[in-house]
Design a protein around this nucleic acid. Structure first.
Lengths: 240, 240
DNA sequence: CGCAAATATGCAGAGACTGCAAAAATATAT
DNA sequence: ATATATTTTTGCAGTCTCTGCATATTTGCG
């Protein structure tokens, strides 16, 4: 039994065939049209009919790609998840997890600056509609879960938790250790994603005072310092 | 000029008068009705008409309290923000910020267990509708911002950044320090909120393996340890 | 009680969204 | 190339969400 009405139900969306390509093109086209129209007229004043017409498809087709109108304003960067995942898995084994995550996210944020123009409009749209900002943040929780799994995979490979000697999982310490093991990647992914969001928001308000790179690193330095009170500029997570 | 159609426009919602009380009662009544109906029939199958009737108001009135139907499923715990704020400001001056936040959140989570029954239904509803889960998470970003301001206020009181000698803000070091000062409370609030969310989600899945209190503390211990790889059970943030 | 402000309600209408069935496009086999 | 199966698009009808406006009801206060 298949779930109906979900265009991205399986492969063809990622396949190299004509179907997959057209599908990705249509989706991107709808997102771009939605963002551009919202930037110009305000998100509330953009109808599904308008978006569909601008993208060259029927209004009914719009709902084959998105469950709601707002989703079209929020579904940017859907491919980032995969790239970050690859970057995390490709990192050298000796780098600590937090640094791995930091660098993977930094690389992706660099990629994003290619689409500069559309992302600029996008942030403008979100800034003017708190409603959509909330929606956008919530939408990224899905990616966060995937990221947690990737981090768990990455950590599992070279972690002393798996390689060295350890107490059997049946014991009390084993239970504690196992709980921490499952909680840690989840927390790391969630906190990392959150740090990116805060850094972006912070930087958007004061673009003239510092580069995004600086804000981003400061945020992760805070994390590495255990979020201790910053009596002095936070210490970097590594010097390598 | 006032924004129309927003019932919580100002005071009366919090005032002790009859107006404020009835308003809070109606809102709570609508939320409770929405959650209960959603738990029974599934959130998608609950119409505004049904919620309104169960709460004893007209459908039109529903939209005087919520901007969208889904908001009624998500607007639980709206009063938590204020209580956490008070707890943060009331904490002894010598406790480090992360510990202050941790304890304030822990106290509030204890409070929540009073409404046990409704919260149980609520989490059930969110679990069965990822769409609403995303919405719920996004909705709490507003509170997160308030919390950041509270933390900044609290830190500003006893922080060496304000009490001791410091370089003038015009200098380069001053700029860096100021940026960190503004970023830190924001990051602390966001990360703390995130940690609570992850702890709750993690605990919901494995309620039998550990108490929520334990999961919660483990999460904050990870934060205090700079999210370092947990080779051994994470070290507590304080021993006091 | 009588007046002013806040709130609730009804109504009409635009727009969001869904199920269904037919048409068009694409893949696969002969 | 033609036929067939699968996927995607589209139109249509209908329900539900949400808003503006006018009106009635309730509450606060002198």
């Amino acid at each position: 039994m298949r779930i109906l009405h979900d265009v991205s139900d399986r492969d063809p969306a990622e396949g190299g065939g004509l179907r997959g390509r057209k599908k990705r093109e249509t989706r991107a086209s709808l997102v771009a049209a939605a963002v551009r129209l919202a930037a110009e007229h305000g998100a509330e004043n953009v109808t599904v009919d308008a978006i569909s017409e601008a993208a060259g498809v029927s209004p009914r087709t719009f709902f084959n790609y998105f469950d709601s109108r707002d989703e079209a304003f929020v579904m940017m960067g859907a491919e980032s998840s995969g790239r970050v995942r690859r970057a995390v898995l490709a990192a050298p084994a000796e780098v600590p997890p937090l640094a791995v995550l930091r660098d993977a996210l930094a690389a992706e944020l660099g990629e994003v600056e290619q689409q500069h123009e559309l992302w600029r409009l996008h942030s403008e749209v979100l800034r003017r509609s708190p409603h959509l900002l909330a929606r956008s943040i919530g939408a990224h929780v899905e990616d966060e879960f995937t990221l947690a799994e990737t981090l768990a995979e990455r950590i599992g490979a070279g972690s002393p938790l798996f390689t060295g000697d350890r107490p059997p999982l049946g014991t009390a310490e084993g239970q504690l250790r196992r709980q921490a093991l499952e909680l840690y990647p989840r927390l790391l992914a969630a906190v990392g994603t959150t740090a990116v969001r805060v850094a972006v928001e912070h930087w958007c308000v004061r673009q003239d005072e510092a580069t995004f790179e600086a804000v981003f690193r400061t945020a992760f330095d805070h994390l590495a310092a255990g979020l201790a009170e910053p009596a002095a500029p936070a210490v970097p997570v590594d010097e390598a």
